[in-house]
Design a protein around this nucleic acid. Structure first.
Length: 425
RNA sequence: CGGGGUGUAGCGCAGUCUGGUAGCGCAUUGCGUUCGGAGCGCAAAGGUCGAUUGUUCGAAUCAAUCCACCCCGACCA
């Protein structure tokens, strides 16, 4: 895409109502726009990143599950049935604009904060027999949670993107088999996104659902809200909430030997056991014709939060730094000549066209602004590879290529550059 | 939900204490100059001073109420 046609522009100054690094940089670079506290628009550049993150998640989930899309709205009855209408304090309900007298009305709905209560009746209609089990489905969707205090930019919003997967099993053993396999699937996601090395499988409390532990995936960053005890040798961590003497014995670990580090929860997996199947009376028919209770698990990843975590971890004082796998563009082509008829300008346009023909996602800075402004913007946007073509670079024999994370650049010929992208044909 | 802070041009701010014609920088528009790290000069355009009510001859400025946003804490299936 030509940068002169890009919807957004960069800004030099940070917005006054943001403090977090992720919100400041993403706003300055034109990736997001704040609508209100905890609610953001994904501008074209931000949407490109979000889509790539979601596509990576989708790719890995498709190896074990089926994608569907549930509604964001659900009837109040769905939550009354599980007893959660009044117990989830972040639950948001719609109130008819023309009827403020009623707390509850036939026009009142829940803005779903999660979907156990919605998916379970759907699967109950489909999977009635042991022959249908196990089964799992997932979606990537916008969730609503009325956080008491939205903060940390896109790390904790009132409206955010979430991948949520739900699995259904004939017994606990089968549930745990699937549950354990999901740990590997999740690790693959975080590796592909580029934060695998600093993302720890973390033992956490099972919440209200079970007496068992659940697991979170925690990425080390100062911007995180959680404190975890990290066992780097065994590549596992423990959420502070489970750190006590009783659990030390139960798990056979010594918390005192571990390093305490701040981290951000980018994913979690829960053995729900029979919490929802019991409440919603979901049983299946086993081999002997007997009715048996269903065992469930739920598995979440927050794509929008992941985007924020990547910014917090990888960006530098000059701006954003995107891993190649989720960068909005893979290559930033910059021409420094303002004369459209110059050799450099012609070569730049020709190179841009060729790269596009080869399927390279290239952002072409064709704007008539100073070199300094183009370089500063390029650093701020954080595209992994920068290619500069100018009269000077042509004199030296080609184009100047530089990685966003490197201080060094080198001159290569246009043929050499194109050869790199040949395999994409 | 408790404590603290901030609302003035699209963005970032000064002016408020001590009431008296609305200012600066960035961005925008035009002209000139420059052309490898946000360069320079001249000019122009842009404002219900968060909202409401009150005090006053006169309110961005004083008072009351409300709203929004940020930070700390509590909370975070």
């Amino acid at each position: 895409m030509r940068q002169s046609h890009l919807f957004t522009k960069t800004r030099k100054e940070a917005p006054k109502d943001e403090v977090s690094k992720n919100a400041i940089l993403l706003t300055r670079a034109g990736f997001i726009h704040k609508e209100m506290a905890g609610v953001y628009t994904m501008l074209p550049l931000g949407l490109r990143v979000l889509k790539k993150i979601e596509d990576i998640i989708r790719f890995h989930m498709n190896t074990v599950s089926n994608e569907l899309l549930m509604p964001a709205l659900s009837p109040l009855e769905r939550w009354e049935a599980t007893g959660r209408l009044d117990t989830i304090d972040v639950l948001m309900k719609t109130v008819p604009a023309n009827d403020h007298s009623k707390e509850r009305s036939s026009n009142s709905y829940v803005l779903n904060p999660t979907h156990e209560d919605v998916i379970t009746p759907i699967v109950r209609d489909v999977a009635r027999s042991y022959r249908d089990l196990p089964v799992s489905v997932y979606q990537i969707q916008t969730k609503f949670r009325n956080e008491a205090r939205a903060k940390s930019g896109i790390l904790r919003g009132r409206e955010f993107r979430m991948k949520d997967l739900y699995s259904f099993h004939k017994d606990q053993e089968d549930l745990m088999k699937f549950y354990d396999s999901m740990k590997t699937v999740y690790a693959n996601v975080f590796n592909d996104i580029g934060i695998g090395a600093d993302t720890y499988l973390t033992v956490a409390s099972g919440g209200d659902f079970t007496t068992n532990f659940s697991h979170e995936f925690q990425t080390l960053t100062e911007a995180g809200e959680d404190l975890i005890y990290v066992d780097k040798k065994n590549k596992i961590a423990y959420n502070k909430e489970v750190v006590n003497e009783e659990n030390a014995k139960k798990l056979g670990v010594n918390f005192e030997e571990m390093e305490q580090i701040k981290a951000c929860e980018v994913g979690n997996i829960f053995p729900l056991d029979t919490r929802f199947s019991k409440a919603l009376d979901y049983t299946y028919t086993d081999e002997h014709g007997e009715q048996q209770i269903i065992y469930m698990g739920s598995y979440g990843i927050g794509p929008s939060r992941l985007m924020g975590v990547v910014v917090e971890k990888l960006s530098d004082e000059k701006g954003l730094v995107w891993p190649a796998s989720i960068a909005p563009f893979s290559l930033h082509l910059i021409t420094l000549s303002k004369d459209k008829e110059s050799e450099a300008s012609k070569q730049a346009v020709s190179l841009y066209d060729t790269l596009r023909e080869r399927g390279v996602e290239v952002l072409f800075d064709d704007r008539e602004v100073s070199a300094g402004e183009k370089f500063a913007d390029s650093d701020l946007l954080g595209i992994p590879i920068r290619v500069v073509i100018s009269d000077k670079s042509l004199e030296k024999g080609g184009v100047e290529i530089k990685e966003r994370t490197s201080e060094l650049s080198e001159i290569i010929t246009i043929e050499e550059l194109l050869a790199t992208y040949n395999k994409n044909c």
